[in-house]
Amino acid sequence: MWLNASPPGAAVPPGAVSPKDAARGAASPGTTPVEPVTWMTEAVRGSAGGRGDRPRLSADSARRLARACWSELTNHDPNVFPVQAERRGVRFYLQEERGGQRLSALVWDGFQWRTVGSLRLPASD
């Protein structure tokens, strides 16, 4: 496990920012921000880009990929489910949940998609 997965129903991690705020580059005041793209970059890097049979991505490539996925997630058609983006064997979902949204990262293990981490995002105003 290379991410601090928060179980369903867990409290909002300190510093998490809403998608809206994150898109503006803003952070929650008085906290250490866990910016989604940074978190997603780690997800991509940690998975070695997929099943482990691919070369590890450079930090810059992983960040570009994460940024593209985040852009896809936040510009999604609101009438389509699920809000999903997938690159190099890593899949992200952004879902409504009680009190906010949850960003999940999954990796294909050769048999199934396994959730390897999730980030709780507070509701945007």
């Binding site: 369903p8 489910f81 699920p82 999903q84 879902q95 009680r98 999940s104 959730t115 999730s118």
Partner: peptide, 19 residues
């Protein structure tokens, strides 16, 4: 507000059914 937190897999179609 009355609903419980979900344990379904992320992306599960059942989320959309409930919503």
């Amino acid at each position: 507000e009355h609903a419980q937190s979900s344990t379904w897999c992320p992306g599960c179609g059942d989320f959309a059914v409930v919503a």
